[in-house]
């Protein structure tokens, strides 16, 4: 199967999955009651799935518990030394079992665009997400909640990625993730942890295409998140995301963020973070701030 075919199959699959979800919802089998506990749908990470800022977590979007439907919409802005990134999208989850999401990223090349004198001023991509809860519950039970996820990404501006050696303009990341919330941890605070193992060959999360002169095979990358709930409305934490290194033209650093998440109620969440993406497309020390607004039900 060639790439194009795989792409069509994946997007087709995504659409096919929407149908039973919507049908079940329609048949009133699922109700929008949002019974899950505050903050258990996380925020929306940069690729449009329930998670933190940069890491997808094993939790599902919104507040739908068993027999319920939930969902979220988000807008995120990241401002780095030489670049900025905007992301927005929506996700819906059924029966706290399956999450479908759509997101768009727009990466402003800023300084680099002007220096290269290239016609493209931004790199954009669309991301189709699917996440399935495989086992367990975030809060109840000894074992964590496990999920399997797919992010199918499609570049809209492939000129620059191709020029720096990227092999493909679209690809899918696959991951397994586990998340657990411990009630009354240190000092009586709830503690959250998540580990995600991602099979990927995406350069800068796919904004610089997939695969490259240094290799075309996917690798397993480690991602993690740790959070503490100071109160049930305020979480602080940090995330780490390892990156593959497929393009020879520039080093590719691992990503890091430290965040404060505010959950005033189930319908709105706000995340502010310090982000450090290291060297991005030859420009070092890409640090800055991250702000994300989520609406959910």
């Amino acid at each position: 199967m060639n790439r194009q075919k795989i792409a069509h199959v994946l997007v087709g699959l995504w659409l096919v999955l929407l149908a039973p979800g919507a049908a079940a919802w329609n048949a009133a089998a699922l109700v929008p009651n949002n019974s899950r506990i505050l903050a258990t749908g996380g925020a929306t990470q940069i690729e449009g799935q329930a998670g933190g800022g940069i890491v997808p977590w094993a939790v599902l979007a919104g507040y739908g518990s068993s027999g319920e439907v939930g969902g979220s919409g988000f807008y995120t802005h990241v401002e780095l030394k030489d670049y900025s990134l905007e992301a927005f999208g929506a996700a819906v989850s059924f029966d706290n079992r399956m999450e479908l999401s759509l997101a768009r990223q727009e990466f402003d090349l800023g300084t680099l665009g002007r220096a290269l004198g290239v016609p493209d001023k931004e790199l954009r991509q669309n991301i189709f997400g699917l996440k399935l809860r495989l086992y367990g519950d975030l809060i109840y039970g000894v074992l964590p909640q496990f999920a399997f996820g797919v992010q199918y990404k499609h570049n809209l501006d492939f000129g620059i990625p191709a020029a720096v050696g990227a092999r493909h303009d679209s690809d899918a990341d696959f991951y397994l993730s586990a998340a657990k919330l411990w009630l009354a941890g240190p000092l009586g605070r709830n503690v959250f942890a998540n580990i995600t193992l991602r099979h990927t060959r995406a350069n800068q999360g796919g904004l610089l295409g997939f695969g490259g002169d240094r290799g075309d095979s996917r690798e397993v990358m480690f991602e993690s998140a740790l959070g503490f709930f100071i109160t049930r409305h305020i979480a602080v934490g940090a995330e780490y995301r390892q990156q593959p290194h497929k393009l020879g033209f520039s080093p590719q650093s691992d990503w890091f963020d430290a965040f404060v998440g505010l959950f005033p109620g189930k319908h709105v969440a706000l995340v502010a973070a310090y982000a450090d993406l290291g060297t991005v497309a030859t420009l070092p020390e890409q640090r800055g701030w991250y702000l994300s607004l989520q609406v959910a039900f």
């Binding site: 019974s35 506990i37 505050l38 068993s66 027999g67 519950d137 049930r232």
Partner: peptide, 14 residues
């Protein structure tokens, strides 16, 4: 009683 009902009750207690 399903997980949704359990969660709802926990939320009421909170």
């Amino acid at each position: 009683i399903n997980l949704a009902a359990f969660n709802a009750l926990v939320e009421d207690l909170i």
